[in-house]
Structures are given as structure tokens and as C-alpha cells.
Nucleic acid binder design. Structure first.
Length: 437
RNA sequence: GGAGGCGUCGCCUAGUCCGGUCGAUGGCGCCCGCCUGCUAAGCGGGUUGGGGUCUCAAAACCCCUCGCGAGUUCAAAUCUCGCCGCCUCCGCCA
């Protein structure tokens, strides 16, 4: 969630952000009103409660006096006690009413605040999905016709190499499932090792987090809002399957106050990612480009908000380094405001060239969530100025299935074999070529 | 799944039986000051987090916070109920 003070003091900024996202602006006005009500209710409740406590302090001693009282005094003291108790009982009713009002206003405020997405970074391009800015192109897509052969897509290559078994995936689990077999399985392990080595070499702490989390963790990361329909929920246990290691990595320090001097804290997590793909209808149904489950290595940073923009650039840098090492052609885009997730203030995607689509398609994504997630998950930092929310950022190092698609299709040879990028060879026993069975 | 124990302001801890004097004791750590040739020791003070009032700001003040939630009561760390977590033992098991 965003800072309520910003809503109160600079509602125009919040409206502008909502507008840029194409989201409801009216929430802002309702929230400002609810906050005002809430603060007034807080004051009334506080005053009444204070009165009640002052009164309560006098009851104990008076009851003591009643015990000490002589027979003559008893009726007078008893009358005092009764009077006081009467007042107190009356006050108790008013306190209870004021408390209910306060709580109601509080709930309303939190509810509205929870509906607001993160404030957009003014540097992000404004517009919808198609309005991204291309920051850079790296590498050149191959021209297979010029090379004298017709390229195969990853489904055909996967079958020839014995790397991907889609039919049996469907038999066992349904559509959008697959088995990685033989060199396909080895390729995943190689990619994971390569990615984790790159990250740990740059100071990230490797993590293998739980892929099943409780509601606060899932809510806190912001995935139960507009993205809720894509999250798997286990009804019997009230648990969620994570769509990314971002969830358990973000919740890792929830409810904690970290020493500002210990920041940035960088983690790299390897986990399965489960996605219902509701609403993606008939898109990308062939092959393993869009699946219900894949493994992924994800970077996650906790940092000082003042450093967040630089940290974002660093994460993007590591993603580029990884793609470079795989010898893949790609472009970097600055995602437009209307296409950002609720938690992100700004997002950069890397899109690799995918020959079978004849287009650049998303293989990694890095988001600067500023203090939005940290506020929801109550992750804070302490420095000389006190305690306040820190910034969280995430970025994909490797989403296995999409990178396998990119590798097979971009590095294929006329005979169906696939060139292995030099950087990956140490993790594949030195193999330079994947060859058809 | 069954039985028992436990959860207090960074860590440890007192308090919970018998509700008000606990708006939470003491120790450790940390911070400030005094003392000291320096260091140590000693002495004095401070040290949870959140919301709000008033302020340019600070200070001051008010409310909430004893795992979480609900209840009883004039009043809850303390009594009642539910939930969560941790530990021990038993059962089952990769």
C-alpha cells in the first residue's frame, strides 16, 4: 500500500498515478474523506477512553475505603461508590460506541487504501500495453532463410532432441504441462546452476524458499488484487501456490525491522512458479511458452528507498549479463504505466527474439516496488532518523521454460542439433552441441 | 492425528493462581552524561512499535500495543472462549 500521508497531503499526485494506470481515481476522494472521519473518530475515542481510565483509578481506592469505613460512615461511602459506578457504567457505553465508530472508520480507510496501486514513477512511459519504450537492442536475430534452411520451433526441436515431452505432460496433468526429459532436464539444471552462480558471485544470498504460502504472505506481496484469478489456492488448507519466488522472498522479512546499515540485502531464490493462466484463453497454446508451472531463479532486493532506482538498474544489469552469456538477441523495454502490476512503480522487461513467433517476447522482468510491498508486509528499516518502510525490488534471472524455448530456437542448426552457449558448457559436462536422438 | 507445556517492550526475565497500586520488574546489550592521565570499573539518565492532537519544526500531550481475535467487567498481561506459532512425548510417514 502507499503512504496514507501522501493521499492526505498530495491527493493530486495519487489521482495522476491512478489515471496513468487507467485505474479508478474516485477511490482517492473517498479515501481522503474516510481518513478524515477516521481521525475525528480517533480523537473522540481517545478522549473518552482517557476519561474512563481516570475514573477507573478512583474506584479501587474508594472500594478500599468502604472496607475500612466505620458503621456510621458506611452508607455515605457506599453512596459515593454507587454514584461513581453509575457514571462509569454510562461512560463504558459511550466508550464502546466511540470504539465501534473508530474501528468502522479504520476498516473503511484500510479497505480503500488497499485498493490503490503503487504510485507510478514519473519516468515510466504513460499508456497501455503497446506504449512501452524500447531502451535498447542487443544482438541480431538470425536469418534462417539466408542460412539456407527452414527453422523448427521448440516443440519440434524438443521432440527431435528428446528434451521436451508435451503429450505425456498433458496425459498426466493436462494442457499447459510438460515433462523436461533427457537433455531438456539437464538444460534446466545447467541454467539454474549458471544463474545462481552469477547471482552469488555478485553478493546475492542463495535461497530455496517454500512454494506454498499462507494468505498474509500472498496478500502482502500484492497478488490477490487484480492478479488473484491467476493464483492457485488450496481450499482445504487455505494455502497458495506461489507464482514466483518473489512471494516467499518478500515475506521472508515481514514484520521485521532491519538495520539500515545491513542494506541492501540481496537474495536469489530458486522455486517452482504456478500460474492458472486464467483469461489467457487460447493464447500461446503450442509448446511450453505459456505453462501452468515452470521453475525460475528470481533475484530479490531489500534496500533503502533512496537507493531503489540504482538498485533497479543493477538488477536489470544482471539480467542482461545473463542473457548476454546465453548469446541470445534481445531488447530491453520500459513497460508503460497501464501495464504495470499493482506493486510496481516501474518495470523493465527483457524480451528475447523468438524465431517461431517472429517477434521479441518477454523472458525476464524486473520491478521496483518502492515501499509498496514493504508497507503491506511490514518490513521496515531503522537508521538515525528512526523506523520507516524500506524498498523492495525483484527481477527474473531465468524463467526456465521460456529460456529453453529461446535457446533451442535461436541456436538450432539445419540438422536439428542445437549449439550450446559457451557459458553453459561447464554445467553440461563440456557439451558443445545437443544432438538429435 | 493424540497428550502435555510454553508465547511479556532487541535478548533473557518478574508478574498471571487471588483483575485496579503492572500505562509492565530486574539483568544483558546499546545510547547520553559524570568520574578518570587513558582504558576498565563505578555513578546518573535514556532505550518497543503504531495511530492521533498541537506545531514551520521540535517539545509536550492523548489513545493503542504483554502471540492474534472475540468475550466478561466500571476496569484485563492477569478471568473465559476460539485461533496461530514453538517445544516435548506418542502415532503415521517422504
Amino acid at each position: 500500500m502507499i503512504d496514507l500521508k501522501v493521499v492526505r497531503e498530495d491527493p493530486d499526485r495519487v489521482r495522476a498515478s491512478q489515471r496513468a494506470r487507467g485505474e479508478d481515481e474516485s477511490v482517492v476522494d473517498r479515501l481522503v474523506a474516510a481518513d478524515e472521519t477516521r481521525r475525528a473518530a480517533e480523537v473522540s475515542y481517545g478522549a473518552l477512553r482517557n476519561e474512563q481510565k481516570e475514573l477507573g483509578k478512583r474506584i479501587g481506592p474508594l472500594q478500599g475505603a468502604l472496607k475500612e469505613a466505620t458503621v456510621d460512615e458506611r452508607s455515605t461511602v457506599q453512596a459515593d461508590v454507587d454514584a461513581l459506578m453509575g457514571t462509569a457504567a454510562d461512560l463504558a457505553d459511550r466508550v464502546k460506541a466511540a470504539e465501534a465508530t473508530r474501528d468502522g472508520a479504520d476498516v473503511e480507510t484500510q479497505l480503500l487504501l488497499g485498493q490503490l496501486s503503487n504510485l507510478i514513477d514519473p519516468a515510466a512511459p504513460v499508456g497501455g500495453e503497446a506504449d512501452f519504450t524500447v531502451l535498447e537492442h542487443v544482438g541480431t536475430p538470425r536469418d534462417f532463410a539466408a542460412e539456407g534452411f527452414t527453422s523448427r520451433d521448440h516443440v519440434d526441436l524438443g521432440e527431435i532432441l528428446g528434451a521436451i515431452d508435451i503429450e505425456r505432460g498433458a496425459k498426466v496433468s493436462g494442457s499447459r504441462f510438460y515433462y523436461l526429459t533427457g537433455v531438456g532436464a539437464l538444460l534446466e539444471l545447467a541454467l539454474i546452476n549458471h544463474a545462481v552462480a552469477l547471482a552469488t558471485g555478485n553478493g546475492f544470498i542463495p535461497m530455496i524458499p517454500p512454494a506454498l504460502v499462507n494468505p498474509p504472505a500472498m496478500e502482502g506481496t500484492g497478488f490477490l488484487g487484480q492478479a488473484a484469478e491467476n493464483v492457485y489456492r488450496l481450499e482445504a488448507d487455505d494455502m497458495y501456490l506461489v507464482g514466483t519466488a518473489e512471494v516467499p522472498l518478500a515475506a521472508y522479512h515481514s514484520e521485521e525491522i532491519l538495520d539500515a546499515a545491513s542494506l541492501p540485502r540481496r537474495y536469489v531464490g530458486w522455486s517452482p512458479s504456478y500460474r492458472r493462466e486464467a483469461g489467457s484463453g487460447g493464447r500461446d497454446t503450442r509448446g511450453i511458452w505459456r505453462v501452468h508451472w515452470f521453475d525460475k531463479v528470481e533475484m530479490f532486493s531489500y534496500c533503502n528507498p533512496a537507493d531503489a532506482v540504482n538498485e533497479h538498474a543493477r538488477l536489470l544489469g544482471f539480467e542482461r549479463e545473463f542473457l548476454d552469456s546465453l548469446e541470445l538477441p534481445y531488447r530491453v523495454i520500459d513497460v508503460a504505466s497501464g501495464d504495470l502490476g499493482a506493486s510496481a512503480a516501474r518495470k523493465f522487461d527483457i524480451e528475447a527474439w523468438i524465431p517461431s513467433y517472429g517477434d521479441y517476447r518477454e523472458v525476464t522482468s524486473t520491478s521496483n516496488c518502492t515501499e509498496f510491498q514493504a508497507r503491506r508486509l511490514r518490513v521496515r528499516m531503522r537508521d538515525a532518523d528512526g523506523v520507516r518502510p524500506l524498498a523492495t525490488l525483484n527481477g527474473t534471472l531465468v524463467a526456465i521454460t521460456r529460456i529453453i524455448v529461446a535457446l533451442l530456437e535461436n541456436h538450432q542448426q539445419a540438422d536439428g542439433s542445437v549449439h550450446v552457449p559457451v557459458a553453459l558448457r561447464p554445467y553440461l559436462g563440456g557439451r558443445e552441441l545437443l544432438t538429435p536422438l
